[in-house]
Structures are given as C-alpha cells and as structure tokens.
Amino acid sequence: MFDPIKTLSPSVPDIDDDAYSMDDFEGVNARWCHACGNNAILTAVQKLCAEEQLAPEKTVFVSGIGCSSRLPHYMGTYGFHALHGRALPIAEGIKIRRPDLHVFVNTGDGDCCSIGAGHWIHAMRYNMNMTVLLHDNQIYGLTKKQISPTSPRGLVSSTSPRGAYLEPLNPLAATLGMSNISFVANAVDWLPSVLYEIIHQAFHHRGLSFVRIVQRCPRYLPHQFDEYMKDPERILLLTHAQGLHVQDAVARRFKHCMEHDPSDLDRARELATNQERLPVGILYRNPGVLCYEDVRTSVEHLTAADKVKALEREFDKFTVQPTS
C-alpha cells in the first residue's frame, strides 16, 4: 500500500510494516448526512477489520438498497451493493462458493424487514457464517421519509400524514421466533464502545450473527431516540461472561445492567418484547447450530479427471450400444 508519509519520512518508526490499519479499510468518503448513525457503524466495522487484521481482499461487505446499504462503497474491501431486499441471498451465494471469505451484510429496516423479509427468515434458518448488521432507523431515508415496518404507531411521515396505523414490527422478537437461529444481539449507534464490542462478538460467532442496531436519522427523525439517549434508565444493559463484556466505566453509566445468559432463549424473547427498556447486548447465542455451508460444501477435492469419470458413469446409465 502506497503511503506518502512513510515514503517521505523513512525515520517514522514502524512496528509492523505488513499490518493493516484503519486507513486500509477506507473506501470513498462517506456521503451520509452529518450526525447520521451510519457513521458510527462504519467506524465500528473499520475498527473491527483493522483489529482483526482481516485481509481486505478476503473480506466482502454485501448490501441491499437504502442509506445503510451505501456502506460497502465506504470500505476498502470487496463490496457488493446489490438490489433492494436481496443482500442476504447474494451473500449466501458468495459464502457457499467461498467459505473462506469474511462476509458482512449491511441492511436497513426497509431492506431487511419489508422488501427482503422473506429472505431474512430463510437467511436465519440457513445460519451461514456471516455477520448481518440491521441498521434500524425506523424510517425510509433515501426516499425521503416514508414509514418503515419498524416505525412506531402514530409516526407522521410522507405516506402516513395522519400517523402510522399499525404497531411496529419488532426485529428482535421476530428473529428470536425464527428457526435455527444462533446469534441475536441489539446495539445502539450512540454507544460506540458497546456497539464495537457487540459487533466484535458477532464476528467471532460461527454462524449467522444478527445484530440489530438502533440508528439515528438526524434528517427525518432527529429526536426519535432522545428518550433513550438522554435517559440511560431506559436502557437495559445485558452483560454476561458468555455475552457482552463492558468496561466498568461504561457499566456505571447504566442503572439497569443485568446478567443475561445468552443461552436462555425464553428469557431472550421476554427481553426482546420488554416495553419499558431497550435491551442492549447479546440476547441469544448458540454456537452449536448447524451451518448450511457445512453440510453443503464439498470438502473433497475432485480433479477434472475425477469429474469426467463420474459423468461417464452417468452416461453409462442411459447408453444404448451400437447395433450390429
């Protein structure tokens, strides 16, 4: 990687020339609005890539359409900015072909919970080893303020001028009700160290790790999450030896901090539907769940000659010999 400072000042001490820094994971400059929660998510994943020393060429960020889905362009890795709602099946195809790649998916509440909801259910069930980040700002931003499935009832928007009619879809409760799930967490963009730690744990989980991130949209819903930001009492921090670890200084800020064993699915479901406080942490983790690629990807290496032989055997089944 060409680095002008290093080149011009050879005296700059360099501990490890080959190590990747956060700069190596920067793509084009982010074009989100000022104070958009997506910036915090971008920083967290760039930090993760650098901390984990992921080879940029071995890392792919896949996204759908929406503000959230611009993220791959801002990374220095491979990226696939696909179609509205279709990030998950594309990521699955990548993973089945190349299980050695680190696959991340960035999706929004419209992308994942509305147009791509069918794929969402099935992606959880396939449980392929990837990290899925749901940037949930409860509104459509890129198309200018329409309600999303996660918008609260009564929310006034361009398509709900008299307020949203229905209760919102709860992405945590929905995910915890799906089959074959293995990792479900909830984070908020304004607590960067907690966000980082959750994404870090999600990355290290083998299977599909689903992280819903409550994300601020300063343009269209500037005060949507003020109650949680201003009043830490509304947050329930979930910690555990097998779950989220936070520094004492962080934990002290939260009056409601509880030990939650992430193997307890019933408790996770209760927490997900808690109306009083927003749970932040790892709700559920089960490392023993079957991954689709483990049962579908062949480990046996077949040469072209092996393949020809196998196909000749198929032809034998249908062959009629020459007459005479």
Partner: peptide, 22 residues
Amino acid sequence: NVGGMVHQAEDEIAACAFAIGA
C-alpha cells in the same frame, strides 16, 4: 458426484440472487 450442488432457495428471486452471489 462432480463437486456440484443444487440449492433450493426460498423463492425464484432468491435463487437468482444466490446464483449471482456464487
């Protein structure tokens, strides 16, 4: 037998997306 696989996707759209990803 020749190192391939058939993926039955959740719908036609997902099948095409999966193939594109691969």
